[in-house]
Design a protein around this nucleic acid. Structure first.
Lengths: 208, 208
DNA sequence: CCTCTTATTAACAATGATGTCAATAATATA
DNA sequence: TATATTATTGACATCATTGTTAATAAGAGG
């Protein structure tokens, strides 16, 4: 770094600044990781190519070389985070754990600020075209999960299973998005707040 | 408008452009209404003072005069929308309607894109300091509502009432934020989707 | 060792958003 | 009517963000 910042008149002594040359996947990965951190810590305004590039230790021109445009970078991040979220959800729903545990885990997952911001970001993206279909990973296994839950229900009611899963998911999402705020206005103590996920699990289990 | 756009050399004929002078509240109201529309239709990027001013039929300098800064305008909008949402929620919860109806109404409220974007926006606002406490309208009546629901419960279980209300609210929020997307990946038909709010109402009523 | 590809970089250009300021005019108030 | 207040406006200044380009150098493959 300092090598190139010599006083004027000594340019002939300047050593060319060494370059790190990464392969494309590595560069893209570095950038998207930094971008994800920025989204968590600084919100959407943090997702500009200059700051993301700085955090990744590269120049913003290089970033543009890899993603084409600032929008391109953002869409890539959106796709990556969406995929990760779906994977996490699937893993939880697909586990052998008891229903109550599953619900608590779902709530825990959605409580992470990263997931909250991801969902909020997606909700804010005005035209749904911005998120092209093929960027949303398909969730083949979800049908298996629905059936597995259905098996625990008397009469193997698939629709009931689907509704229950959806209720759990949307409650978890709502909790992640504005749990603390709502809790506050509802006058809940923090211990009541902590118990809420478990309580939901307990109640929903009753509906099975 | 056209009056001032005469050819050069005729400036002496120019009539001074008439000015509309509004009182401050009216001006602020005009601006925030336009801003709200832009948030719905264009997302966060639509909330810049130039576009909002254009939509309100005023100059952006005037907007700055009333709100101090672009951030000031956004915070004012956030406060206004939050207040409206809380009011709407309170009205629904406070109505005499049967529980199932109440739940359906809550879901309908949250399905409006305006509410979705509001919540998403709030979730994205990085530092919670940005939303100062006094901008969130207090919800005194909520305690009354909780008690009224509790009266319908055997044993007047206030905590149960609170939890139920919160479950309904967070499910409605989750539905508003990513209902369609999740529904799609879960393989629900559109008629199943339409029935979901009513189904939730039915189920939650069982828990009373 | 030579050549080709391309990741990387600095410097610059272009655009957009935010904010400042002095002048003006509408309205209230004396 | 005369004066004070302030909402309004255009023109300008500033800053941040995005994008472009030509030159450079790291590494792959011959």
């Amino acid at each position: 770094m300092g090598i190139v910042e010599l006083q004027n008149g000594y340019e002939h002594l300047m050593t060319t600044k060494p370059r790190i040359r990464r392969n494309p996947e590595e560069a893209r990965s570095l950038i998207l990781t930094a971008a994800g951190k920025r989204l968590e810590e600084h919100g959407l305004r943090g997702l500009n190519i200059k700051d993301v590039a700085d955090d990744s230790g590269i120049k913003h021109g290089t970033l543009l070389h890899h993603f084409g445009s600032a929008e391109g970078m953002r869409r890539a991040l959106l796709a990556k985070l969406s995929e990760e979220l779906i994977t996490d959800m699937s893993n939880i729903l697909n586990s052998d754990a008891a229903p109550e545990i599953v619900f608590v885990e779902l709530f825990r997952l959605m409580s992470q600020t990263g997931q909250t911001k991801l969902l909020a970001w997606r909700a804010l993206e005005e035209d749904s075209d911005t998120v092209s279909k093929d960027e949303i990973p398909s969730m083949h296994l979800i049908e298996d999960i629905v059936e597995r839950v259905a098996e625990r229900i008397k009469g193997k009611d698939v629709n009931l299973a689907r509704n229950l899963i959806f209720l759990a998911l949307s409650a978890a999402v709502g909790w992640g998005i504005c749990g603390p705020t709502l809790m506050g206005t509802l006058g809940m103590t923090s211990s009541q707040q902590d118990q809420f996920p478990a309580w939901v699990g307990e109640q929903l289990t009753k509906l099975i």
